[in-house]
Structure formats: C-alpha cells, structure tokens
C-alpha cells in the first residue's frame, strides 16, 4: 500500500479548519470542537482519523459533508472550494461526496423499505422508476446483499447487513469520496472484519478516496494509508500509517497505540498492564492550558516548556508531530514492556 503522488488536485483538501458549536457569546467561551486542522486526501487514498471520544472526529466529517458550517478555514473537493456551499448547492457535489455513519440502527429510516431509501437518493439526481430500481439492485448486490433486500424494511436486517445497506446507499450515487464515520465500531468483531474487507474491495474496485474515522489505531491500520491523530480538535501527529503505528512519536499516539485492541487476549492483558505503567491518565474534563500543549495535563513527559509554549507541528522522519519532546518518545520513553 503505497501512496501515489499525483499532479491532479487532491480529492479533499482541508486548511486551518475551525468549527465551533452554537452561536453567540456562549460559543466563544467553550473551546472549538475542531481547532486549526489541515490535511489532504489524494484520489484513491484512505486517510485514517483517530482520537478518543469527543476529540472532534465526527465534527470534521460533518464539516466536510456540509452538515456543520465551519467557523474558519477552507475545504476543497477536487479543487473546488466547497466551504460555504449550501446543502442545495451541494446536490451536485452530493454525488461525489458520500457518508456512512457509525450507528446502522439510526441511519436508516425504519418506516421505509430499503429500495425506497435508495430510490429517494437517486431521485434527487433525476434517476427514477425502473432505472433507479435496477441501479439499487446492482448496488445492493455489489455490497453482498441479495436483490430481494430491496423490498424489505431495515428492522429485518442485522447490524452488519444494515451497515452494508448504508454503504450501498453511499455508493448508489457513484461517488469518489466517502466519509466513513466509525463504520464498524457498532459491530461485533467478526462482522467488523467482513465490513472492513468489503470497504477495502470497494475502494480498490471504484478507486474511492476514504476519510476513515475511528477511535483506535488498530482498525485504521488495516485500511488507511496515512493517519491523522486528533486530540481536543487539534492534530497531534500525522504520517504514513506504518510509521505512526510502529513508531509513534507523540505521547498521545503512544497511548492510543497501547489502547488498540489486539485479537489475542494474552497480548491484550500485557498491553493493558503496559498502558497502566505509562500512567497516561484518562480523558480529563479539565480545560486545556490555553498557552501550552493541550495534552500537557495528561502527559507523563510534560515539563515547564510544555505548559508555557504550544508545540507546533514539525516534521520528524516521515511524520509531523506537535510535541516538544518528540525526539525522546521511543528512545528514553516509554519504558519497554517487560
């Protein structure tokens, strides 16, 4: 899995994205959900977006999709500025940029047959009647569902099947970029693997670019080429997925790597012990230091400089890291597992 560098514009380009929820004075008091995030996704590439709960991953996805207007920053889709495009203007874009949500129980209207849901999406681009039905059936088959699913209701499917339907719903408009917001988090392990394999196959078949959101690095490792690690709306580390997972350079990434679930229980127990030894506290509710590193209150390496000065992203090896002591990470810290 190598990233192909191309001269044509990236599928997605995000610069200095800031998103605040709510309006007025109250919004200015709370820290933004997304704070100055930049990244690109090349056509056919998968970018993993990881971070613990509440770090702003879904918010980035919503900003891309036009569900939550960005406060600042710019978003380009295939070189077109779509930052302020209204949902209506997006109707043509909507075919290019599609979404699969985490919760397959909430993302399908229980009162509609699968066919109606797919047809509704097609009608918006002028495909109706038999043509729509034929296309819906082809798409359902391409995600591994029988063609008679079209006349059934969502309640007649399991979680994994529903997620396949959600993927079909995204694919039916023949997009080239998908936002996958934790598409497998709600599924059990064996179903997760099936859906991940399906996503990988579809990507290779249709040359799809993915923004793949997950809260741990384990799932991301399977699918993504590059990965962005997010903490409280800010990028802590980014780079090729092998580098970030095998040699994380940010203390927060180290904690996330240690947190990634492992298939073998024995190894998982070891890792859990190791993680506890790292003494990286769990998500604190204390507001981050406005001046210093946002991770400082939880970081075992934090020192005076960390509290006084916000670390900028710097390039170290193939990765970009926002940490004053990135050089130490992996060398003098963390202590090796016994």
């Amino acid at each position: 899995m190598t990233t192909t560098v191309q001269s044509n514009p990236p599928a997605i380009e995000v610069r200095d994205l800031v998103v605040r929820y709510g309006g007025g004075r109250r919004a200015m008091k709370t820290p933004p959900a997304v704070d100055g995030v930049c990244f690109d996704i090349a056509p056919g590439e998968t970018l993993g977006l990881v971070g613990e709960s509440g770090s702003g991953k879904s918010t980035i996805g919503k900003a891309l999709l036009g569900l939550q207007p960005p406060t600042e920053g710019t978003i380009w889709l295939h070189g077109k500025d779509v930052t302020t495009a209204s949902l209506k203007e997006r109707r043509t874009l909507a075919s290019e940029l599609r979404v699969v949500f985490q919760d397959p129980y909430s993302s399908l209207n229980p009162a509609r047959r699968i066919g109606q849901t797919l047809a509704e999406s097609l009608r918006l681009i002028g495909i109706k009647g038999d043509a729509a039905r034929a296309r819906a059936i082809t798409t359902l088959e391409s995600v591994g569902l029988p063609s008679d699913s079209i006349d059934r209701f969502p309640s007649q499917f399991s979680g994994g099947q529903r997620q396949r339907i959600a993927i079909a719903r995204a694919l039916v408009r023949d997009p080239n970029v998908l936002v996958l917001d934790e598409p497998v988090s709600a599924l059990d392990l064996s179903t997760q693997a099936q859906v991940l394999n399906l996503l990988a196959d579809l990507r290779d078949e249709h040359k799809l670019a993915y923004l793949f959101i997950a809260h741990d690095l384990g799932v991301v490792r399977f699918l993504a080429h590059r990965v962005v690690v997010l903490y409280r709306g800010q990028v802590m580390e980014s780079g090729p997925v092998e580098d970030v997972t095998s040699r994380p350079r940010h203390p927060y990434s180290v904690a996330l790597t240690a947190a990634a679930p492992v298939p073998r229980p024995a190894e998982q127990i070891d890792r859990r012990a190791h993680r506890e030894a790292l003494s990286v506290g769990s998500a604190s509710t204390a507001p981050p230091d406005p001046k210093g590193c946002p991770f400082a209150s939880r970081c075992p390496l934090a020192d005076g400089q960390c509290h006084a000065e916000r670390p900028m992203l710097r390039l170290i090896g193939g990765q970009r890291v926002a940490c004053h002591h990135a050089e130490q990470v992996g060398v003098t810290w963390p202590p090796p597992p016994n």
Binding site: L87, T92, L93, F101, S106, S107, E120, L124, A166
Partner: peptide, 16 residues
C-alpha cells in the same frame, strides 16, 4: 432530528 437518517438525507442533497 437526532436520527442519523435525517443527516443522511441532507447529505443526499435533500432540501429542508
């Protein structure tokens, strides 16, 4: 409106 299928419909390009 909390249902994700509302968001999905909006992403489809459906008007308010």
């Amino acid at each position: 409106r909390q249902h994700l299928y509302i968001d999905a419909a909006r992403v489809d390009g459906m008007g308010s």
